[in-house]
Structure formats: structure tokens, C-alpha cells
Design a protein around this nucleic acid. Structure first.
Lengths: 206, 206
DNA sequence: GAAACATCATATCAAATCGATATATCGAAC
DNA sequence: GTTCGATATATCGATTTGATATGATGTTTC
């Protein structure tokens, strides 16, 4: 229903065209997903999205006159590679995908979806794409996440105090609890930023 | 090959017998896995493990004279439920699984496996079961994880400084980096504990 | 006291995802 | 000069997920 990979792919395509292999690296480098998603996920997902009319294959191995280069820049000797890439030379032929108008609609509705509470991976992905959300939707999402985390924190802290567990299991619990605390601090920072921005543009009080 | 769910199930069964539903709750409460694994994973996994001879179904709805109760104790009014459970009454009939000698062998070899670097979820699971590892294997595992995290930290920090990213994406990156830092602190604490223990029992220096 | 709802418990299905592998080109290293 | 690593797409089987079915029993509420 709410496939996170779809959100990631569409989110990246909102910005500019990408081919499959590039999406894989970008998910890691721009969307902060710690493990590379597998090719067995990415290519079927692109086919699915194409079938549904949310993306369209633009060209294979396009000559690309636009100066957007190939992606993972910030490389030391990226200039040479970029030169080749702009000429469409080298490598196996690429299948470049572009998001369709319907895809853009689908993306924002997926991103804002009111369903399912998300785990930390999903939530991070959503936040990495939060610029496409309205301020009020951002706040809603953040508050929902905050509630989930508060509940989870209590569970973890209880677990960390469970004397039936051995040292290692308790240590894992305690560490997990600290992770949740860190998440909560982050959420609160983001929430206060959202609120001060809201106040700037739409002053309610006074 | 190195199915994490198998490790979790066998790890729980090392301690005592469990039925499927109970394993699900225990993975959360004792092994600190934050989201409940689905039934579509747990029951097929148990069948698979049974087929391979690593676990055996002991009884369905056993009268259970042992006082081990039903699991998630620490409940407020657990006494009543425990009473019923000890009598084998109530609920749909349970299929209780027990680990076999071959299963125990498989478990330790899976837990100690030298292959695949694990993500944070996998690593936490391993650590929650670390009491079944030898001290030197624990140190090996911890050091390997430490190396991975150092690498990951550098990537995240680079990402957080990437000015091509918008505020939200950068914030996610920075937060992820903090998470990795927290993980590293934890690893280092565990490592120093391991080393001081090692010194206590097998003094090398002097 | 019965109707409604939550919890316990196993099971199965389609769809999604993963890990591995195949294939091929190119640049770099040795 | 050839092995290695990165780029690039594709597919396969096995695993995992999310949803749903089924049913018993315990708890709450009117």
C-alpha cells in the first residue's frame, strides 16, 4: 500500500531524472538510508511505477545536454568522469526515468499519508523529503512520531530494568532506549523550528 | 544463508521452550527488536527449522507442570492468568517448540558467523544473545562492528555538510550521524568491559 | 447477562524485498 | 596485460511483510 521504496524513488525524481543504479546510490547519499537497497528491489519497482504511469523511461543512454552531471559528485577527480558522462559515453546504456504529473500527485499523497505509523527508517525517509510537505503536515507527522517514540521509550526502559535478562540483553535494551531518547530530542528540535517558522509567517497571538 | 529470524528463534529456545506467538512477543521484549515480526515470518520459519531438524514440536497445549508461566509477566493481575496457564486451560491450542542438540550447534555457529557485516538491527540481535558467545568472539564481533561504524560515520558527516541538500535532508543526515556516534560509544563501553574481564581471568601482562 | 471488544493463537496468501548471480563496459592499479 | 573495482541492467529463488481468516477466551460496558 504505502511502499517506502516508491516514496524514495518518486521523491528523488521530483528533483531531476535518474536511472536505476543512480537511484540506489542517491537513496543512500541523499535520503540517509544506511544500507543500499538491492537491485532486486529497485528495477522491479521502477517497472511497477512505469506500469502505473507514475514514471516514464525518457531515454536509454541520453546525450544529456543539461549540466546536471551524474550524481555522486563531491568526488576528487569527478571532472573527468563528469566530462565522459555529459557526452553519454562509457558504461552500459542507462535507462533514465522521469516522473509524470500523475507521479507527482501520487508522491505527495504517499508522503503525507495518514495511515500506518512508521518505524525509524520510514520516518527518516519521510523527513528527508519533508520539503515537499506543507508546514502543517510536517507538524502532524512530527507529533505522531513523537507519541510513538514516547511509548516505545517507556517499553525499552522497562526492558532495560528487567532483572530476568542477562547483562548483554539489558545493555542492548538500555542502548536502544538511548537511541529513542536521541530521536525524541531531534523531533523536538524540528518541532520547535516548525513552530517558530509558523509564527513568523502567520502570527496568531496578540 | 544467515537468517536473522533463525538466530532469534533458536536464541530464545536456548533458554526454554516457546510457542510461535510467544516468540513474537519475546523477540520484542527480550531481544529489543523494535517492531513485531509478522506471523507470516514466524510460522513458516518454525516449520523450516523443524524440517531442518533444529527444533521439534514438543506438544500442542501441554499441561505444563513447570512454573515458567506464559511469558510477558510483570503484569499487574498476572496471577489469575498464570493460574489458568499452568492448568493448560484457555486459548487456542499451542504448538510448543524445543531446540534439538543439532539446533544448539547451528545456533552458536550462526551467532558467531564470520560472514556478512550486519546492520544495526542484526548487530543488536547478536549482542542481545552475546552470552552464548565466547569472550574472544564477542571482541571480534565488536571490533568488526566498530570498523563499519567508523566508516559509516564519516559518510554521514560528509552528507550532513552537503550544501546541495535542503535543510530537512541535511537534518536527517546529521541526526543519523549522531545515532552512529551513540552506537560507537556503546561499542567502546562494551569493548572495554570485555577487555577488563579478559584481564581478570587471563592476566597476560607482567 | 449478553453484546462488544481486546487478547491469545495458528495459519495462509499475494506482493514486495533481499541476496546472489549473470552479463557487460570501463578505468585504474599492479 | 590482466586483474580489480565501479558502473549499469536484469532476473531468480527464498524470505519477509501486511492483510486477512478463523476461532477461543478474557474483559468491559450497558
Amino acid at each position: 500500500m504505502f511502499h517506502m521504496l516508491d516514496i524514495a524513488i518518486l521523491g528523488l525524481l521530483m528533483d531531476r531524472d535518474h536511472h536505476g543504479y543512480e537511484i540506489r546510490t542517491q537513496v543512500r547519499d541523499r535520503l540517509a538510508v544506511s544500507s543500499n537497497i538491492s537491485f532486486g528491489s529497485i528495477y522491479p519497482a521502477l517497472n511497477r511505477l512505469e506500469r502505473q504511469g507514475f514514471v516514464a523511461a525518457v531515454v536509454a543512454n541520453e546525450p544529456r545536454g543539461n549540466a546536471l552531471s551524474t550524481g555522486s559528485l563531491s568526488g576528487e577527480r569527478a571532472s573527468l568522469r563528469a566530462l565522459r558522462a555529459t557526452q553519454g559515453l562509457g558504461r552500459r546504456s542507462r535507462k533514465v526515468y522521469r516522473i509524470t504529473p500523475r507521479g507527482r500527485e501520487e508522491f505527495v499523497s504517499l508522503l503525507a499519508d495518514p495511515a500506518t505509523l512508521d518505524d525509524s527508517r520510514n520516518f527518516s525517509l519521510r523527513m528527508a523529503l519533508a520539503k515537499y510537505l506543507t508546514p502543517s503536515l510536517r507538524v502532524t507527522l512530527l507529533e505522531r512520531r513523537r507519541t510513538d517514540l514516547m511509548k516505545r521509550l517507556a517499553e525499552m526502559q522497562t526492558g532495560a530494568r528487567n532483572e530476568q535478562l542477562d547483562t548483554y540483553a539489558r545493555s542492548v535494551m538500555a542502548h536502544a532506549a538511548k537511541g529513542v531518547e536521541l530521536d525524541l530530542e531531534w523531533i523536538d528540535t524540528l518541532l520547535s523550528t516548525e513552530r517558530s517558522n509558523q509564527q513568523t509567517f502567520a502570527p496568531e497571538a496578540k
